[in-house]
């Protein structure tokens, strides 16, 4: 009987072990348009319909799909000051193609899960790459369009974000934050709060240290025609936030959810350079 009991317990342990490695957690890829090099990749973790709680750390390994060996290993950084908590990592991806990302989630109670996901890198991204000169857009401002309701689809329009064009901003010698967001039309947790993050960082940093520009995604809120800058920048998704250095070169390209902390971290090196 003891042997039978032992055998049954062993079998149950095997099942438990298998269950332990099988993750109930969904990974949602929340950024897009990844280029070769070191793209910013952001993802959210969901347990059922809710954001996964109690994830203490995330380690990652990246593999070429169908080919084997890991090409990169590292960890992701968590940002919790956004409507949904999300994680960001910057893998080094040497070529265009599909990449399998194996994660190891360590929960606060020590449990580990290992969900994976697949992402694609492009030789040529749709949006301008890092280091490129930003398109010198002549976006709408309060001077060209005094009616604030036509500058943003949002309900509370802050005129401070419509004081200059991108073309003018790069002449100021300051870094510039350009946000392509449509607050009135995309209000889900994946995109809605991004403009609030831009406004929060502007308040923290001030207009003396950097330029902050919101470009509404749509030119016309009835026909929903894309604004000219969206086409100039090659954007097919939103939201996007770009950070330009004092020469107008793109130093950060941030798609999808963006927390104030992450935006401020990305902007900080430029502020110290200017300061």
């Amino acid at each position: 009987m003891a042997l039978l009991l032992l055998a049954a317990c062993t079998r149950q342990q095997e099942v438990d072990d298998a269950m332990a490695t099988l993750s109930p957690i969904q990974v949602l890829l929340v950024s897009t348009d990844f280029g070769v090099g070191q793209p910013r990749v952001s993802f959210a973790l969901f347990d059922g319909e809710n954001a996964a709680q109690n994830v203490a750390s995330v380690a990652l390994e990246v593999f070429p799909v169908d080919e084997g060996g890991a090409v990169w290993a590292g960890t992701a950084v968590s940002y919790t000051d956004y409507l949904i908590p999300y994680w960001v990592f910057y893998p080094e991806l040497p070529s265009a193609g599909y990449w399998g990302v194996k994660t190891v989630l360590t929960m606060t109670d020590g449990t580990t899960y290992s969900p994976g996901f697949v992402m694609e890198t492009l030789e040529k991204t749709a949006a301008p790459p890092l280091g490129a000169q930003a398109p010198l857009s002549e976006n709408k401002t309060v001077f060209t369009e005094p009616d604030l309701s036509k500058l943003s689809s949002g309900t509370e329009v802050n005129p401070a974000l419509y004081q200059m064009t991108v073309a003018e901003a790069v002449q100021t010698g300051l870094p510039t934050v350009v946000g392509f967001v449509t607050p009135g039309f995309c209000q889900t947790r994946w995109c809605g709060p991004t403009l609030e993050s831009v406004e929060a960082v502007r308040e923290a940093v001030g207009d003396e240290a950097a330029n902050f520009i919101h470009i509404e995604v749509y030119d016309d809120f009835q026909a929903l025609t894309l604004a000219a800058p969206m086409i100039e920048w090659g954007l097919t998704t939103e939201p996007w936030v770009f950070i330009l250095d004092e020469n107008g070169r793109i130093v950060a390209r941030l798609s999808g959810p963006l927390s104030p902390t992450e935006l401020q971290e990305q902007l900080a090196p430029l502020l110290s350079e200017v300061g």
């Binding site: 099942v15 099988l22 890829l29 929340v30 969901f46 969900p115 994976g116 996901f117």
Partner: peptide
């Protein structure tokens, strides 16, 4: 046109494995 990508895992087991347990 809004897109969202996600992933999750499941396991395929031999038929009867759970029954045996």
């Amino acid at each position: 046109g809004h897109g969202l990508s996600g992933s999750y895992m499941f396991e395929v087991v031999e038929g009867g494995g759970r029954t045996a347990v």
